[in-house]
Simulated assay, not measured.
Amino acid sequence: MTVITAIYDASEQVTWLGSNGRATIGSYVGPSVDHKWYAIDGWAIGISGTGPKLEALEAHQKDFPKHATRPFEVLTFMKDAYGAFDIGEMEEGLKRYCGNGLLIHKSGAIWDFDNSFCLTPVTEGGFWARGSGMDLALGAGLALKEFIPSPKALTKRVLEIVIANDVDSPGEILVQSFDARGVLSDPIEV
Rank of each mutant, 00 (worst) to 15 (best):
N165A: 14
P31D: 12
N100V: 11
P52M: 08
H67V: 00
K145Q: 15
G182P: 07
P149R: 00
V175P: 00
S107Y: 05
A81Y: 00
A23L: 11
A153R: 02
G133Y: 08
T24M: 12
K66P: 04
D166E: 15
E73H: 11
C118L: 07
L138H: 06
L103T: 02
G49R: 03
F85H: 15
G101E: 01
S48R: 01
E92P: 00
N115R: 13
L17V: 07
S177D: 11
L136Y: 08
K152N: 04
S132A: 14
V122G: 03
A68E: 09
H60A: 12
S32E: 13
V190Q: 06
R130I: 02
D63N: 14
V183R: 15
F72T: 02
K152P: 00
S11I: 00
G108A: 10
D114L: 12
D34W: 01
E124C: 11
E160H: 15
Y28G: 02
E160T: 14
V167W: 09
L159Y: 05
F64N: 06
S32C: 04
D34N: 15
G83N: 11
P149H: 00
S177C: 13
Y97G: 01
E58H: 11
F64T: 05
M1S: 12
R96K: 15
S32P: 00
R181Y: 11
F127H: 09
S116A: 13
G139Y: 08
L94F: 14
A143H: 07
Y82A: 03
I110Y: 04
A153S: 10
Y97K: 04
I25T: 10
W128H: 15
E189A: 13
G108I: 02
G51S: 07
L54D: 02
T5R: 05
S150N: 11
P149E: 04
D41K: 05
L75S: 07
L57S: 05
I87N: 01
T123H: 13
I40T: 12
L174V: 08
S107E: 05
V29G: 03
P121R: 08
M1E: 07
D63E: 14
K152A: 09
G51V: 04
G141E: 06
W16V: 04
F117Q: 03
V74A: 13
V14S: 05
G182F: 10
Q176G: 07
H105T: 06
F178E: 05
P151M: 00
L154C: 05
G26S: 10
L17C: 06
